[in-house]
Design a protein around this nucleic acid. Structure first.
Lengths: 209, 209
DNA sequence: AAGCGTATAGTCCATCTGGACTAATCGAGG
DNA sequence: CCTCGATTAGTCCAGATGGACTATACGCTT
């Protein structure tokens, strides 16, 4: 295996791998699906980055070409499939990012893909996040108090105050999420999607036969 | 002027310009100050990026060299100063980012540097942000309802639920911030810092004479 | 007084990213 | 039936980033 391929995964790379767990695709279709699902809330989808990301993933042996077809005279469409390493890499990346409270952008992606983990695994990681959040929250409170005591002017502290408020909100949200997963109010695990996008994929597969 | 230099400012670039409003500095000192103030919560400070950013800002005529000194046999220290365009650019960038609800990372920096704006200006921009936040919040609520109606499995919606919760929290935080600025409970405007870091800068200036 | 870690002040380069561009096809309106 | 805009599927490259590397000096220990 390439040296710590998981650590080098970019957010877009993770989303690509996660998409391929649902079926083989060519990059253009990944972009279309992600836009349909509003995944562009989480990452910027630009062509240059997408195609480059896919070729990096291929070099890292996390995915591979499975064929090239063409429709009329349009450009070729290279279809990709996950390797076993690629399938594992998504899970490892999510496990790594889910408890981290620095890197908010990465966390959102990890959370969005957390359904790829087993319930117990996700629960454990989220509980660790909870501890880290409590820590962080305390650090912000402390920092604010000390800064005020030192006479730091309040207008330069507003960003920290906001962060403190958001950390509080995230903590209460996380508590309810954890209990919903724990008492199985929330279904979990890598289950079938069953939504429109999947019906779409199923249709494409059927049409290809 | 270079074509829309403000739009091309990177987060680190903005922080560099903002720092230079406090006094002339060489890049290494910028890094030290930012680390001291924990600005690395907002941006990654790596040498390569910092020096490259400074030279880009110089090319864009937002800052300029004012001298090169050296201490013993150590590497030269090139000191930089803001140009008028650079001074304005910080303000323009903050004005542009403060109302935007996409780009959370940029917003945190805009908020941290918002004390460079006049009170009325900041108030106006934050009120516009308030409207955008309310919009966003509604969109997330709607999206969630529709997705549930369509039968989208709930484990893929947790990230949106979190976003909805955080938007709500941000909204209440913003409301109190706006009223604090409005009733002048919170002092505002580009005033002197008066904190340790400034005393440090003052000492350095004194020592140089 | 030699050695070791850390602070100072950068340079260099392999990647990574974003935006502009190409080029073909399809559907709808005039 | 012709043309305009949108969609499909990608290439290309300038510029941005991050991390490794260089080189000196200073303080502290042993």
């Amino acid at each position: 295996m390439v040296k710590d391929a998981v650590a080098r995964l970019t957010p877009l790379g993770v989303m690509v791998l996660a998409l391929l767990r649902e079926g083989d695709m060519h990059p253009y279709e990944m972009a279309r699906l992600m836009r349909m699902r509003k995944d562009d809330r989480l990452i910027a989808i630009t062509n240059g980055t997408l195609y480059h990301t896919v070729s990096r993933l291929q070099k890292a042996a996390l995915l591979d070409e499975v064929g090239v077809d063409r429709d009329g005279n349009r450009p070729e469409r290279t279809t990709y499939t996950l390797t076993d390493a690629g399938r594992d890499a998504v899970v490892e990346w999510v496990q790594r990012e889910l408890p981290r409270t620095d890197r908010p952008a990465e966390f959102r992606i990890a959370l969005a893909e957390a359904h790829n983990l087993e319930r117990e695994d996700a629960l454990d990681l989220l509980r660790r996040r909870r501890v880290a959040l409590i820590d962080d929250h305390a650090l912000h409170r402390d920092g604010l108090h000390k800064a005020r005591d030192k006479g730091v002017p309040p207008q330069v502290l507003v960003e920290i105050e906001r962060q403190e408020a958001l950390l509080g909100a995230e903590l209460t949200w996380l508590d309810t999420l954890i209990s919903r997963i724990d008492d199985e109010t929330l279904p979990w695990g890598p289950t079938a999607f069953g939504d429109k996008t999947d019906r779409y994929l199923a249709q494409r597969k059927a049409a290809q036969q």
